[in-house]
Design a protein around this nucleic acid. Structure first.
Lengths: 202, 202, 202, 202
DNA sequence: TATGAATGAGACTTCATTCAT
DNA sequence: TATGAATGAAGTCTCATTCAT
């Protein structure tokens, strides 16, 4: 699936790409020269480790997604009750809101990188793995909600997951358009999402 | 806001761009030659009507969004009760599901074209206009739900809109990942969305 | 040699080209559209009267040269003594000083349009005709100087013409670089030229 | 003023441009492809060293002018008396007669590159430096003529320089139009120029 | 006759990739 | 192994010329 280990150079290059993306670069218009400079390696070196620009960017994005997924799961798991876990997820979104290629943004919108990024073909088998890890996280969250008797509904797992995901999508929409919602602060937006979740699962 | 009228050539070019997008072309890597061929006009002709490739693509996308918005509103308005209106909206999404730049996909995910498409700077003032028309549609939908006593909740308009939008985002997520949900057919997915809406607004 | 008569449209086009040149346009980068606009005719009309852009510009320059030659000869001939004639020639230069393609500038520098303007091949037979008219003018000037006993030298006609031409070249150089000669005003520069002519022909 | 040192590639490109000009190419219509081919480098390489075609041509012309100025000064200075120096200058002109952009041709006619070549904006500060070096050369020539008692006139330095320059312009005109002066050979034309100088400065 | 909308050849320029060092 | 100078394919855009009106 992924050997998980990268050489120092590969990591330097990934971090260069990620830096560029975080600084607003567009993955379609970023150049190899820019990646080389941001990575602190020579242009030729990139081709020692990757066979094309597309491969560099694809693998860097997947690396970024894995890191973000790991991080998000760790943070959510560190909380010990349904509400805290849920709010923690929203907080992560706030912290990454301007991150066009954040895992969450991507998973919720198209759900498929190849639509946004035609390059990513060979690597796509990793995506379902991330999705599945996120789904497990949601399942554990739901279980906790059930144990805490916040969730009482007898419904399919699909429905329950859907409620969580859709509330997160709503929050993402809020964060992406905060300037359009001047009378709703972030705290309030979170509360509304939580309220929807509780009502829809009750 | 927009003079709303275009020459035949401009429309041919817009339709060429829209065709390319619908056929899976990426707006970042599409070339002027491809646009010219898809539009059935000469390469030079494009520059008689637009001053740059960026302008062509930006304006074509905005044109597409306006058309889609008009169409969606007309279809939803043609229905006479809350449930039919809501399902009609979901049906439109199904019909456009592979449409990466559909208005709905875009409005729900980032809400801002400039994030996905850095080109669009000057034209962006049109976007809030589309958002506002969609919001009005949602408001009318909600009002009908209230009159039909499907909605009883006493909550802010923000919350009520959020519920609708988030349910649509959930449905979009379903449609975008249908192959991952083999045990849920489209009808069922719609029903789940509707259920969530009713519960969250009750 | 030249049928001397042009249609109104041809004249309009010539004057458009001349206007553009006088306003600083470069004959190599001027476009047919600019010529059409400056001439007040449609772009297609230009091709009704000329077979290519090169032909338009070539013929316009030759037309300009003929007009300038006619004008210069008439003005010089209107004066009745050697000194007045000579100064009149210099005055014409002052009035046209910023005119990169003035006949005089051209005749004195390279003497051949095809060096400056590779287009002009077919039309070049007209140039010797202008040169010859200018030479006749110089010869009449010299004769008058001889009659007025300003010129006494017994030398070849070549030498005498050369003196006049070189003094004019010197004046042209002055006019073209006036800002570099802040302590020499135009009057003084003319006087120096005249002095040189008189000394060299005495 | 100019760092005076260029990389091998830059020199190859300059020489490519100079070759093209010497072979009759027009600086306005020459293409980057032609320059690349004439220079023996790839088209892309040109843009590694210069930021635009205009810059390439401008800098190449200035490089050519500096080389020509150096060469002309060295040759004139190598002669030890007034007459030899003067004739040496004329000989250099003969050797470069078909050189449309020779420094001398340019300095004498318009005196300003920007009139002939609108590109040259930033580099123009070098031109006065060449002019001033030529003027110094002329001043030394005149001083020698004075010491040899060929020049006796009491006149301004402007007048004396003007006589030299105008005689050179006359010779340039001869060389440029040799085919029109079939009864005057080059030797004779030089003698006439020298005669004019001596008479005008006596 | 007069026009200008339409066009495609060809210009300049960028940049992914190679390869000699 | 690491590099960046060199390159040419391919991109955007211009404009001389055509031709239907």
């Amino acid at each position: 699936m992924d050997n998980n280990t990268y050489t120092d150079k590969e990591l330097a290059i990934f971090n260069g790409v990620i830096d560029l993306i975080n600084r607003g670069a567009n993955i379609y218009s970023v150049t190899v020269s820019e990646i080389a400079k941001a990575s602190g390696v020579g242009k030729g070196t990139i081709y020692e480790y990757f066979s094309s620009k597309e491969e560099v960017i694809s693998k860097a994005i997947l690396y970024k997604m894995r890191k973000e997924t790991d991080y998000a799961i760790a943070r959510v798991e560190s909380k010990t009750n349904f509400k805290d876990k849920y709010y923690e997820a929203l907080k992560i979104i706030v912290e990454n809101f301007d991150n066009k290629f954040s895992t969450i943004n991507f998973l919720l919108s198209t759900g498929r990188l190849d639509k946004l990024y035609a390059y990513l073909v060979d690597e796509e088998e990793l995506i379902p793995c991330y999705i599945s890890r996120i789904e497990s996280l949601i399942d554990r969250l739901l279980l906790m909600g059930y144990e805490e008797e916040i969730i009482s509904i007898e419904e399919s797992q699909y429905y329950k997951r859907m409620v969580i995901i859709s509330s997160i999508a709503a929050f993402l929409n809020y964060v992406n358009n905060r300037e359009g919602y001047c009378d709703i602060d972030t705290e309030k937006a979170m509360d509304y999402c939580y309220k929807m979740v509780v009502k829809a699962l009750n």
